[in-house]
Amino acid sequence: MKKITISDVAKQANVSRSTVSQYLNHRFDYMGEKTRDRIEQVIEELGYQPNIVARSLKQKSTKTIGVIVANILHNFSTEVSRAIEDVCHEVDIHTIICNADDEPKKEKKYIDMLRAKQVDGLIIFPTGGNKQLYQNMIDENYPVVFVDRKVDGIPVSSIMLDNHKSSKLAVDHCVEKGYDQIGIITTSIIRDVTPRLERLEGYERALNNRGIPIREEYKKSVEIESIQSTLHEMLQQDNPPQAVIAGNDLALIEILKYVKGHRLAMPEDLAVLGIDDVSFASFYSPPITTIAQPTFEMGEKAATVLLGKIQKQETKDEGIDIRFDPMLIPREST
Rank of each mutant, 00 (worst) to 15 (best):
D112P: 01
Q59P: 05
Q293E: 14
V144R: 07
T127C: 05
I320G: 01
D276L: 03
E233C: 07
V272P: 09
V9Q: 05
H262K: 12
Y203W: 11
K106H: 05
D238R: 14
R215I: 09
V87C: 03
N239R: 08
L264F: 04
D101E: 14
T19L: 15
D112L: 12
A292P: 02
T187C: 03
R17Y: 12
P240G: 00
E332Y: 09
I93V: 14
I65E: 13
G128C: 07
V193F: 15
K105Y: 08
L306C: 06
K316F: 04
K105Q: 14
N51C: 06
I288G: 07
Q118T: 06
S7V: 09
M1Y: 06
A13E: 11
D102M: 05
D162E: 14
H262Q: 11
V119K: 13
I320K: 13
P143A: 03
H94T: 12
R36L: 07
T5Y: 05
K301T: 15
Q313C: 01
S221C: 10
T295K: 15
I224F: 02
I68C: 07
D120T: 07
Q118I: 01
K108W: 00
Y203I: 06
E140Q: 15
R115L: 13
S282D: 12
K309P: 03
I4Y: 11
N136I: 04
M137G: 00
Q132T: 11
P155D: 13
H262V: 00
R331I: 11
K220N: 10
T290Q: 04
T64L: 04
P126C: 07
V67P: 07
L122A: 06
T5P: 08
V145A: 08
I182S: 10
N25H: 13
L114Y: 08
E332L: 12
N208H: 13
T295Y: 04
N75S: 14
K257A: 03
L114D: 09
S7E: 11
L256T: 08
N14S: 14
P126A: 06
N99E: 08
E223Q: 12
C98Q: 11
D120I: 01
G32R: 10
S188T: 15
Y203N: 12
F125S: 15
H173G: 04
Q12P: 02
L273R: 02
D192M: 05
S61Y: 02
L252G: 14
L250D: 02
I43M: 08
I185W: 06
N209C: 03
Q12W: 01
M113Q: 09
A271V: 06
D112V: 09
R38I: 03
N25Q: 13
K312W: 00
L200G: 10
G178P: 10
D29E: 14
I214Q: 11
I329G: 01
K309R: 15
V156G: 02
L24D: 10
L273F: 00
E103F: 01
G153V: 02
T64D: 00
T334C: 14
E201Y: 10
S226K: 15
D321M: 13
R36A: 05
C174Q: 13
S333W: 08
I322R: 15
Q22H: 14
P104L: 07
P330D: 09
S226P: 02
S167Q: 09
E90D: 13
S167H: 08
M137K: 00
I138N: 06
K58C: 05
A246G: 10
I68K: 09
M137T: 07
Y48E: 11
K109S: 13
